[in-house]
Design a protein around this nucleic acid. Structure first.
Lengths: 132, 132
DNA sequence: CCATCTGTATCGTACAGTGATACAGTATCG
DNA sequence: CGATACTGTATCACTGTACGATACAGATGG
């Protein structure tokens, strides 16, 4: 379980853990049914409190990505392969976050072309990871 | 000044205001030297406390996007047109945020192709806005 | 069944976001 | 000039959230 957290980050520990697990699940690094480390195990690895890991796990369960068995452990649930058209609201949320990134890229001094290259490069890396 | 804030958002009011102003400045909707509404004026429009607006302004000043004159008002500073190569760190930060978006797109049910289309479409809209 | 793994619930503390209020700088106008 | 009415600033109280401490409860294997 290769995770890392930064105490001094502005992102909460909960969210740091959650984001990384979500990514691994979405990409398929963590396969369906696979057991995750116990809350205490992962907490010890990350040097955080096990309650923090437990909360991250629970939120991922709420999202439908994990199944938690009290006393048994935590397991990866199937990544929903649903092709259903995503809610307009969800798409708009993604769009807003994308715009924020474009703004930051612009303010950092990236040209539109450079930004486009960066985005496409990251996207390609992501999809490649997913396939393998 | 067309801004909107949502009280029930998970993003702080400070950041909501700041993000929107940053976008307007980066895109050029707010031109260099242009005066921004006073903290009390904007606060009243948004139905938030003027301290919240003041804090947003100050943070934008810290970023170098605004100039605040105590007793005189707040003004847009030049958007830095520096082409200097952005710090590796900054690029990596953008990459991480992009990956999070790709993860969410995947979990929402978007295919890689749909994601790519969404991203490119948003990017085109953004650069078009910037040109005009 | 008891030992020892799992995750859960509840509470205390620390800190960040927000707002109330008093303060200080600037400009205008008589 | 000095009064006044604008600007932004500083400080403090309140509230909600993040995090951790600790006691609890379900599962499982000797």
């Amino acid at each position: 379980m290769i995770l890392t957290v930064e105490l001094q980050s502005s992102i909460s520990l909960d969210d740091q853990i959650r984001n990384q697990l979500r990514e691994m699940i979405a990409v398929g690094v963590l396969a369906e049914g696979q057991a995750l480390p116990s809350v205490r195990q992962l907490a010890s690895d990350l040097a955080v409190h096990f309650n923090t890991v437990a909360r991250a796990y629970r939120r991922l369960q709420d999202e439908g990505l994990l199944v938690i068995g009290h006393g048994r452990g935590v397991f990866v649930k199937a990544v929903p392969r649903r092709v259903r058209v995503p809610a307009r609201e969800a798409r708009e949320s993604l769009g807003g976050r994308l715009r924020q990134i474009f703004v930051d890229a612009r303010l950092i001094g990236l040209t539109p072309v450079q930004t486009r290259d960066l985005v496409l490069s990251e996207l390609e890396q992501f999809t490649r990871k997913e396939r393998s």
